[in-house]
Design a protein around this nucleic acid. Structure first.
Lengths: 182, 182
DNA sequence: GATTATATATATCATTCTGATATACATACG
DNA sequence: CGTATGTATATCAGAATGATATATATAATC
């Protein structure tokens, strides 16, 4: 997905600064996508230059000005057009589609070159990690800051439910079949 | 995972050319990782310069020479050292770890901006795509070329079983809950 | 039998993106 | 009172991709 479409989409959920967009990628979106500051800031600047977003500078005494971007009508149109135009190309993406780079699977692939105790520890920690992820996806309490907008989306509930189901499957598979690795 | 470690790991399964390594990424590894020619060829050259692999040139009349690389003892050691040193950092990767970029999830996130019929078609095609993937992972017949080495790995059976279980979960979740999206 | 598409095989490179770093002040903690 | 962490924007070297170039063989289509 083009970085422009993605930034516009996130801004459609409410006005935000570049820093806050980054927080979304490190918070609720961290398991699905990410963009770096080096991409976010230039993208916002170019979107602003082309009037797809407007910017209000909130001067805060001694911190750098907080630049809060708001999507414009023109921006909404561009976002919708791009989504519609590219929708079909995203069908074969995601879990078991393109762009996945799973270092954990690579580690499993080469596990025979690692000492058994090491692999045992790794698998134990992986299980702990997945349990933690599961809790995270099942947690329904309040989230800090302005990250509520994204949590309250209907689609986000759907995605979290899916993620939760997938992790549970992965966990029980790992627990039942880890013996087959060595 | 460093590209060097990865290429060495793949060469540990048997001697191969750069083109054949790429075939592994486009075949059995396509759902887990990928490297481009622009990375593979320079990596092999530098591995050869440092004696981690040896190279035998098979001249084939009028095609460009096929350069078949074989991992050396020094290369095996480097690979094992790297795997051991970095193993713990791969625990939090993979499905629901870092480096995932799922455009399909992004599309779901912004699905409210798409016409209902479009989303309906997209979800139908996604289901078809996942069914196809499932078949692919469950297929146990022969594979063409030299891609058998990787299929016969114990770890690959484990991974394929996991992938298969995950896709099944994803499929039934989608079928049961797709109504919640609109 | 001619044409077109696909596969084999290596290599390069502009463009893109990341990850690190710079800058600067605020706040919390022991 | 120093140290670590958080807010906030910005830039840039280095890495990786995706496209393209080159050259030939083979299979499919017409």
């Amino acid at each position: 997905m083009q970085k422009e479409t993605l930034c516009l989409g996130l801004l459609s959920l409410g006005p935000r600064s570049g820093y806050e967009i980054k927080q979304m990628f490190e918070g609720p979106l961290s398991d699905f996508y990410s963009l770096s500051f080096g991409t976010i800031y230039p993208t916002l600047n170019s979107l602003q230059a082309d009037k797809y977003v407007s910017c209000k500078q909130h001067s805060q005494s001694k911190k750098p000005d907080k630049k809060v971007y708001t999507i414009t009508k023109k921006g909404m149109e561009l976002m919708k057009d791009n989504l519609l135009g590219d929708a079909s190309s995203y069908i074969r993406s995601g879990n078991f589609g393109d762009q996945i780079k799973s270092e954990f699977f690579l580690l499993l692939l080469f596990s025979k070159y690692l000492p058994k105790e090491t692999m045992n520890t790794v698998l134990n920690e992986r299980v702990l990690y997945l349990r933690q992820k599961l809790e995270q996806f099942n947690y329904d309490g309040p989230v800090p800051g302005n990250l509520d907008a994204i949590r309250n989306e209907k689609s986000v509930s759907f995605i979290r439910g899916l993620a939760s189901a997938l992790i549970e499957t992965g966990l029980s598979y790992m627990e039942k079949n880890r013996g087959k690795l060595s």
